[in-house]
Amino acid sequence: MTISANVQQGTWSVDVRTEAAPDGGFRATIHVAQGSPDGDFEHTFHHAKVFVTEREAVLEGLREGMTWIVLKSTKTIAV
């Protein structure tokens, strides 16, 4: 079973999808997108950790994606 989730507001969005990890457990693939006058930003990456349950994977994926949006919005990081 695959769980997916989406959070969005205004010009940004975070999409997360879980998948079974090769060695057991589940990992999250995270896609973040933000539109801004400085240019649109999109980035897709895997969460660094493998989780025991899909629920943990999708929740942590959303947290990680939201952290990226905050860092990008406050210009703490430039990618």
Rank of each mutant, 00 (worst) to 15 (best):
H43S: 13
S36V: 11
A21F: 05
F51L: 00
E60T: 14
G10A: 06
D15H: 05
I30M: 08
S13H: 10
T76Y: 11
S13R: 11
G35V: 11
F26L: 10
G25Q: 01
R55K: 12
T44L: 15
R63G: 12
T18H: 01
D23F: 00
V14W: 04
G35W: 11
D23S: 07
W12F: 15
I69M: 05
S4F: 14
I69Y: 02
S73Q: 04
R17A: 07
V52H: 00
I30P: 01
K49C: 02
Q9N: 15
K49S: 01
I69L: 04
Q9K: 14
T74Q: 13
V32W: 03
H43Q: 12
W68E: 05
F45P: 00
R55Y: 07
G39F: 04
S4N: 12
I77C: 03
V70W: 07
E60S: 15
E54F: 04
T11Q: 13
I69D: 01
A20H: 11
G35S: 14
A57Q: 07
A5C: 06
F26V: 00
A28N: 05
G61W: 09
T29R: 01
A20F: 10
T76S: 15
D15T: 14
F51V: 03
M1R: 12
D38G: 06
A78N: 14
V7W: 10
F51R: 02
V70G: 03
T2L: 12
K49R: 00
K72T: 04
F45L: 04
S73N: 04
D15E: 10
S4I: 08
A48P: 05
T53A: 08
L71G: 00
K72S: 02
V32A: 04
Q9W: 08
T74G: 08
V32Y: 02
I69N: 00
T53S: 06
H47M: 06
A57N: 15
L59Q: 09
P22S: 06
G35R: 11
A20D: 08
A48T: 02
H31G: 06
A20T: 07
G61Y: 10
G35A: 12
R63I: 15
G24C: 02
V16A: 06
V79K: 15
I77K: 07
W68T: 07
V79S: 10
K75P: 10
S36R: 09
D40R: 01
T76D: 11
I77A: 03
R27G: 01
M1S: 11
F51C: 00
I69G: 00
G35F: 09
H31Q: 08
S73R: 07
W12L: 07
M1C: 14
F41A: 08
H47E: 05
I30K: 10
M1F: 10
T29I: 14
F45Q: 00
H46Q: 06
T74F: 10
A28C: 14
V70A: 06
D23A: 09
I77Q: 07
A48D: 01
